[in-house]
Design a protein around this nucleic acid. Structure first.
Lengths: 333, 333
DNA sequence: ACATTGAATTTTAACGGTAAAATTCTAGCA
DNA sequence: TGCTAGAATTTTACCGTTAAAATTCAATGT
């Protein structure tokens, strides 16, 4: 690959001049600029962004850390961030944390050591204190789906408690009063908040929360089937099942039908997230919309505004979930 | 962030010695090593991988270019590559091409300019010639789901033609003879091959391919619904519908039910890819398994073997799809 | 014609590391 | 004791770029 040096020789100008035409900004005469540009195309020159980054201390790329690369939730999130940033000519470096403390830290350090101009984190295993410490470093940190005290300006988050509340409330309004709940892993803040909302809705409607109608799932399809199986093995009676995300709801639906349930007549099921696939279950899944793609866009905008000086961007730090009514919850007869 | 220089001063050794303890390999006396290590922890030193990369001309990271960050297909692929590489201590830099020639090229250049040790590409819009040219460069290129003549050693691919054949054959074996086909975008090699397999199966069974039972979809849910609607608007009669991927099959299932079909009685539907969600449609989707996660692992292994000198890895370049029989295709009565 | 000035350009020193070449140490041996 | 081989360590140049400081250039006003 041709270097800036070869370009400068071919164009018979100095390195600095070539550098200046690459970086558009400063003054170069039109004549010189053309000479350089011609030399660049002749050599097929592309700046080495590693060297640029080392010399200039910025990289035009922002790091993203997500828990997993697959799955509809993270897919939408990454896509949102990437498309917004890409439109602004910035690149994205993605790595994963697998919801494990060591791997999350390792991923963060990788992104920092790669000179990212900013980092957008979706971390679940790392402590608030660690994050606060991290923010003191020179790489700007932003947080998705996590609200850390004192770092509000750096967070884009969903009101998960409200979402949990809405789900349960809507089910109660349909006349259900024996309601089972399959939660997400409780070390994740999202899961805890959704559960808290559920409990608040129950309390406000004078329904006691029962441990025997609670199951902690894994946010995957298996969590839904395992949870439902657990309740059935224990001979629990309930007319509605709330799942803390749509994957678990799908698993529950599939399992329920395998067990001979007729849905939604025998059991109402509601999910959370409104993943694309939620409208393809049968019955179509009633769920809580989690505007994660939008939130991804917003996180990217936050970076654009704060790091890349793009003015006139208005930022929403906090998003609200909404109820999406489809066919999987029916009025209790 | 502390630099190697500060470490060397604190440990009162030279830069080179610090560098050698960082890179483990060469000889350093235990006493010196300890001094350096202590200094490093005291300063909280982390090597700047940008500088390492510039100086050493490798980066311990491999670039990945996918068409989209969301969607079950790419999610599985990225996850496969990442987990294999991560286990070997390598990092992954992901970017997207959006199936557009310009963006694919831009993404590739970004990855190259970032000094990736190797690049794994899933490109769809770029020409074979461009890829061949690319391979002459100094960054090693590997290809997923694409077979370029003469580059077999660098490709990990699925026999899509066989998959298309298997899908159609299985449907024919169930007694169907009027079969509609919703293809993927025909500029994508995968789509073309799957269609070719479909046509071969038809031909072998003396069923004529009919343009009126063909629709080119977009590989998304809407492709399935649009396609089915198209056939119905044209009053086509058919007992089976083959979709070139599972997303389109899901869309078709949902749309069919909205139109009052009873599935699978009124219409048999088969998909392609065997995405996780395929078992959560109703009826459960019969489909062709595309071992994309495995292929991701294999692509990573190929890199590990060729670029990072890991011996004793055996490579499979070509994968075969298999029929997954579930409930969405029934015997024609 | 000649300072003056501001723009265009070049020189030079970083950025934070690696790696080859050069040097210093340390033992072992004649 | 003096020499030497091999290990440990340091010196030095370089990776490809940016950016501040220095220099050259061209136009302007007097």
């Amino acid at each position: 690959m041709a270097t800036i040096y070869e370009v400068s020789k071919l164009a018979s100008v100095s390195l600095a001049t070539v550098s200046r035409v690459i970086n558009k900004n400063s003054r170069v005469s039109d004549k010189t600029r053309k000479k350089v540009l011609d030399a660049m195309t002749e050599l097929g020159y592309r700046p080495n962004s590693i060297a640029q980054s080392l010399a200039s201390n910025r990289s035009n790329s922002v790091g993203i850390l997500v828990s997993e690369l697959h799955g509809p939730f993270f897919g939408q999130m990454m896509a949102g961030i990437e498309s917004e940033l890409r439109a602004a000519g910035k690149h994205v470096i993605i790595t994963t944390g697998h919801s494990e403390e060591d791997k999350e830290k390792d991923g963060i350090e990788f992104l920092i050591s790669r000179n990212c101009d900013a980092i957008i984190l979706h971390v679940e295993a790392v402590s608030d204190d660690y994050i606060i410490e991290l923010c003191k470093g020179k790489t700007p940190i932003y947080l998705m789906s996590r609200l850390v005290d004192g770092l509000d300006e750096k967070c884009i988050s969903l009101n998960n408690e409200l979402g949990g509340y809405l789900a349960t409330e809507s089910v109660i309004k349909q006349g259900h009063s024996t309601i089972a709940y399959i939660a997400g892993p409780q070390f994740k803040a999202d899961s805890k908040d959704r559960l808290a909302g559920h409990q608040r809705a129950l309390a406000e409607n004078n329904i006691a929360f029962s441990d025997s109608l609670y199951f902690e799932g894994d946010f995957k399809e298996t969590g839904g089937s395992d949870g439902l199986k657990h309740f059935m093995d224990n001979k629990q009676e309930f007319s509605a099942l709330i799942c803390a995300n749509d994957e678990m709801a799908s698993g529950a639906i599939t399992y329920a039908r395998e067990q001979g349930f007729s849905l939604p007549k025998d059991l109402s099921i509601i999910g959370f997230d409104n993943i694309i696939f939620a409208r393809h279950t049968y019955p179509k899944l009633t769920t809580i919309d989690n505007p994660v793609n939008l939130m991804g866009h917003m996180a990217a905008k936050l970076v654009l505004k704060n790091i890349y000086q793009q003015k006139n961007i208005s930022i929403t730090h906090s998003f609200e979930p909404t109820l999406i009514t489809r066919d999987s919850v029916i009025c209790k007869t």
